[in-house]
């Protein structure tokens, strides 16, 4: 069992938790993820690592409620325990193994969308701690759904906000802001790292392709075990089938077949929606008399 040391509600449906997991904290690196199983009945849910502290022995995760298991997880409080917390999984971000002198000469732009802001944070922080100031765009629907803004401001070179309704920062999509930075403001970037909804990563990658900026994306494919055993996370990159869990989660954004990735991500959407509806109705005291909840 793994103890929740701290819980913070970031938005009504996004939660940040510090989970006591000394072994994972000791081995974790930017770009990696964990698999969490809330209880005996829970799914194995892959979640990117949002922060970690090897000394204190905790790993931070940020969870958005999407299905039954993530809802149960979000309902847990500090002091509660969760059944399983496995990791770190996947390959660390490429820059972690590059020489610092070369990193310090480069200009990084991170593009974070929604809950994707969480995995961007440890990357920007890692660079900041090594004297590399990276620019960061954080996007969300509106000011109320922006997450980790203060944390990000503390480690980013320059922080740009973008909201669909303009309630904070730039009004529009992160791709619009990216275009403004590169085309109007003449900003030069050596590499872009985009993490967020698949559709956002697809359009960021499409834009950076025209600018000729190498771009890394982090995929949140469906997974069961997270160690290469099941192949649920298959994705086509540069015409080859790769496993997100062991070959990724980060890939060259210009090579990923996003349409296939999005389609595969939706594989269980109908079943998940159904399970959630059934649970909601049960919680509201509804009993199906014709067996549709089975």
């Amino acid at each position: 069992m793994y103890k929740i040391l701290l819980k913070r509600q970031l938005t009504p449906d996004i939660v940040l938790m510090h989970v006591e997991a000394p072994r994972v904290a000791r081995s974790a690196q930017p770009g990696q993820f964990v698999i969490v199983r809330v209880d005996e009945q829970g799914e194995r849910v892959p979640l990117t690592i949002a922060d970690y502290d090897a000394q204190e022995g905790w790993v931070a995760i940020v969870i958005q409620t999407v299905g039954v298991s993530t809802r149960k997880l979000c309902d847990r409080e500090a002091g509660d325990e969760i059944a399983d917390f496995v990791g770190p999984l996947g390959r660390p971000s490429d820059f972690v193994s590059e020489p610092l002198e070369s990193l310090r000469k480069q200009r990084f732009l991170f593009v974070a969308g929604g809950v994707g802001t969480a995995p961007v944070y440890p990357q920007v922080k890692w660079l900041y701690e090594r004297g590399v100031a990276a620019d960061v765009i954080v996007g969300a629907k509106n000011a109320a759904t922006l997450i980790l803004v203060d944390e990000m401001r503390a480690v980013a070179g320059r922080l740009f906000l973008a909201t669909d309704d303009g309630s904070a920062g730039y009004k529009g999509l992160v791709t619009g802001l990216l275009q403004e930075l590169v085309e109007q403001k003449g900003q030069h970037y050596d590499r872009v790292i985009a993490i967020g909804p698949m559709i956002m990563m697809k359009f960021v990658a499409a834009a950076t392709r025209t600018y000729g900026i190498p771009t890394v994306v982090s995929l949140n494919s469906l997974m069961v075990d997270g160690t290469g055993m099941c192949g649920a996370c298959r994705v086509t990159v540069g015409g080859r089938t790769r496993f997100t869990c062991v070959d990724g989660p980060e890939f060259d954004g210009h090579e990923v077949d996003f349409d296939e990735a999005m389609r595969r991500q939706g594989m269980y959407r109908t079943l998940e929606e159904r399970a959630r509806k059934i649970e909601e109705e049960r919680a509201a005291g509804h009993r199906c008399r014709i067996g549709l909840d089975r």
Binding site: R23, V24, S27, F85, V86, G87, P88, L89, T227
Partner: peptide, 9 residues
């Protein structure tokens, strides 16, 4: 359990 050789250790 929950310990992956090659990753966790």
């Amino acid at each position: 359990t929950d310990t992956i050789a090659g990753r966790t250790l």
